[in-house]
Amino acid sequence: MTAVPDAIDQALGIAPGSPLHALRALRPEFVSGAEACRAAVLDPEETLDLSPELRRAIARRVVAGAGHDRLTEGYPRPADPALAALADGEMPEDFALAALARHADLIAETPAKAGPEHLSALQEAGFSVPQIIALSELLAFACYQIRVVHGLGLLKETRA
């Protein structure tokens, strides 16, 4: 376990000494694994021309819908107005960002309805295949975080 609280600890508002923190410490590989994933989708070695700000804006859009405020705060609101619109759940005016916003909402809310036409829409908006893969992983990671935070939040009143 690292001494610094990870993103999930921060989202849960827990610190060393709490029962839930001790529970998480039973699975250090889940903690470190999620942190490595967070780094890989937000600040990867190969950026694929997707900026850290864009990546955080998308993640913020996805997690904001789940109502876990501290999780949302983990993704700072971008200064750039177009990225802020994306992060805020609005429909950006920029064609590519609007396509990305629509895709993010589809994947987060109704993944069962996703089909090949939605990938074509991203390609028509100018995204490359590697970018679409990276964006897919990023969106799905945010959905993973939502469920870990929501589920572990139910174990705050933990029992031995």
């Binding site: 590989e29 889940f30 694994g33 999620a34 490595a36 994933c37 780094a39 890989a40 989708v41 990867p44 070695e45 190969e46 694929l48 590697p130 893969i133 990276a134 992983e137 990023l138 990671f141």
Partner: peptide
């Protein structure tokens, strides 16, 4: 996207 592939597989 090798970065996310490796990290997710480990997790």
């Amino acid at each position: 996207d090798p970065d996310s592939y490796v990290a997710r597989t480990v997790l």
